[in-house]
Amino acid sequence: MYHNAKELLALIGDSGKSIADIVIENEMELSEMSREAVMEQLQYRYDIMYKACHDGLEKEVISISGLTGGTGKQMWDFIQTGKGLQDMTTQKGIAYALSCSEVNASMGLIVAAPTAGACGILPGTLIAVAEKLESSQEDILLALAAAAGVGQIITKNATVSGAEGGCQAECGAAASMAAAAITQLCGGTPAQCFEAAAIAMKNVMGLVCDPVAGLVEMPCTKRNASGVTNAILCCDLAMAGITSHIPFDEVVDAMFRVGKALPSTLRETALGGIAVTPTGLALKEKIFGTGGCGGNCSACGGCQ
């Protein structure tokens, strides 16, 4: 077992193993599963991720509130025009993440990674990068395992809950996981994977969770898109040999402290940030009327 990146890297030592190897060995022991069974579970989850990343490309997927949706298709259509500025891998990753996030908001089937609100970042990034690299299915699943290892460490030492740590804990964690996954897929060393993960988390340190009307829609969908770009950027930095300077474990500790320092208005309560802008409040009223709660209290700030 490992509690942090330092311990995981020590377990790897000079064995030539990957992060995924250690994470899978740990899972085999913890869940009393064979390696084949672990890989089957990963494949099952990957298939659901893949479908969610594609269902919103050709057709508009609309959220259950009816207020958002269709951005996966908009981005996919835009990619076909060839006018996008980012490279094709990043653009496709963004479209996949938007699709996955919209499938989630429409009460579709997704895999929380690590949460439902951030569910588009890891699969969107991974699928797009694997397409560019023409990776084998085995390598894609091993990249997922590496991502899970990073997520385990964040969960053990900090939090992946927006209510506890803000969006940095959800979309930040997802981008860290995705950055490590694709760095492993690109042939980076385990140390480089953690450099990429550390930088990705640092890039969104302090990011608040301020969902309009408290729903996993605005700004969540677009933060999923942003997480893809963050992950790919950090993979490139790590593969260039650039390091974080601040080690991953210390970045995770810092993220947790920052999360605790955030006022509760900026931790998933919909009482701060864009949720209480005039437009955010108007959208809330459109969904719930003058307060889904009855409308006569000051409990949530929505009726101010």
Binding site: L42, I48, S63, M107, V111, A116, C119, G151, Q152
Partner: peptide, 12 residues
């Protein structure tokens, strides 16, 4: 690892 890559769930 399946608590991290999971649950497999209906959103949101």
């Amino acid at each position: 690892m399946f608590d991290i890559l999971g649950p497999v769930m209906i959103g949101p």
